[in-house]
Amino acid sequence: MLNISAVNKTYLSGDTSLQVLKDVSLELQSGNSLSIQGPSGCGKSTLLHLLGALDNPDSGQIVYTPNQQTTINIHDLSEIQADEYRRKHIGFVFQKFNLIDCLSVYDNILLPSRLNQSEHQDYIALLIDTMQIAPHLKKLPNQLSGGEQQRVAIARALAHQPSMVLADEPTGNLDEDNSHIVSQLLFDTCTELKTTLIIVTHSAQVAQQATVQMKMHNKRLSV
């Protein structure tokens, strides 16, 4: 369960302040998917950063309960606690792929699970098969197409079996055909693994695949 309550965020630039989130509230059941649409600069990515403990809200609460034994007050995490939270519970998928160029596809995928010392070969093999990237494991990322690189990035995000995946415009650099293939794989895999998925997208077609669909408008979330 993810519970966001009255979250506010303002950025300062010199003497100017810019509020990007205002009293944002949301409740999302574990294992569900949420799509967020809205114009550029409206605060969508900022919200993902707060959920991933990459930044802190000015006020409000973000409480995440990945299982019955664990409750995490994301808004209160120290830097060390935030690192542990991200390492154990969060998978990130970005628009620009962010693969490590000097590592093979296979080593890119395994990186999060190795950091967690939780390398499960059968599970990794399933991800590789699901993402249809088995022929590319020994290649470097720059030897792949954009769609192939994003499938590798999704496999990497899921490799350590996170309970929540945060995806920021994951199809933004892809053509229409690849966008459909990649987004379908992302939603289907998260559904099968019962992984909570929160995806920011400009694509109405991608957004419609989510269990819950919301829009960011006037610094707030609405249906």
Score class of each variant (00 low, 15 high):
1 M>E: 09
1 M>W: 02
4 I>M: 10
5 S>C: 12
5 S>E: 13
6 A>Q: 10
6 A>Y: 05
7 V>H: 04
7 V>A: 03
7 V>S: 03
8 N>C: 10
9 K>Y: 04
9 K>H: 12
10 T>F: 11
10 T>S: 14
13 S>Y: 15
13 S>G: 02
14 G>T: 12
15 D>K: 15
22 K>V: 00
23 D>V: 05
23 D>N: 13
27 E>K: 14
29 Q>A: 14
29 Q>H: 10
31 G>P: 01
33 S>G: 15
34 L>E: 07
35 S>G: 03
36 I>T: 11
41 G>P: 08
42 C>Q: 15
42 C>G: 09
42 C>W: 12
43 G>P: 07
48 L>E: 05
49 H>I: 04
50 L>G: 12
51 L>G: 02
52 G>E: 06
54 L>Y: 03
55 D>W: 06
57 P>A: 13
58 D>Y: 15
58 D>A: 11
58 D>S: 03
59 S>N: 14
61 Q>C: 10
64 Y>M: 00
66 P>E: 06
67 N>T: 00
68 Q>H: 08
69 Q>Y: 10
69 Q>D: 15
72 I>H: 02
77 L>R: 00
77 L>D: 01
79 E>V: 13
80 I>E: 15
83 D>G: 07
83 D>N: 12
84 E>Y: 07
86 R>T: 09
86 R>C: 11
87 R>T: 04
88 K>A: 02
88 K>S: 02
91 G>T: 03
94 F>T: 02
94 F>I: 00
95 Q>E: 10
95 Q>H: 14
97 F>P: 03
97 F>I: 04
98 N>Y: 15
100 I>E: 05
100 I>G: 02
100 I>P: 02
100 I>H: 07
101 D>V: 04
102 C>Y: 13
104 S>P: 09
104 S>E: 09
104 S>W: 11
107 D>I: 09
110 L>H: 10
113 S>N: 02
116 N>A: 15
117 Q>H: 09
118 S>V: 03
120 H>F: 11
120 H>Y: 14
121 Q>V: 01
121 Q>M: 01
126 L>V: 05
126 L>G: 11
126 L>M: 15
127 L>R: 01
128 I>E: 07
132 Q>I: 10
133 I>H: 05
136 H>C: 07
136 H>V: 02
138 K>E: 09
139 K>A: 12
140 L>C: 00
146 G>K: 09
148 E>T: 12
149 Q>W: 12
150 Q>I: 09
151 R>S: 10
152 V>R: 13
154 I>F: 00
155 A>E: 08
156 R>W: 06
156 R>A: 03
158 L>K: 00
164 M>D: 06
166 L>K: 00
167 A>C: 14
170 P>R: 13
170 P>Q: 07
170 P>C: 09
173 N>H: 13
175 D>E: 11
178 N>D: 14
183 S>V: 05
184 Q>V: 07
187 F>Q: 06
187 F>W: 07
193 L>A: 00
195 T>V: 06
196 T>H: 00
196 T>Q: 00
197 L>H: 06
197 L>E: 06
201 T>N: 13
203 S>N: 15
205 Q>N: 14
208 Q>P: 01
210 A>I: 03
211 T>W: 01
212 V>N: 08
213 Q>G: 04
213 Q>R: 12
215 K>T: 15
216 M>T: 06
218 N>P: 05
219 K>V: 08
221 L>P: 05
223 V>K: 09
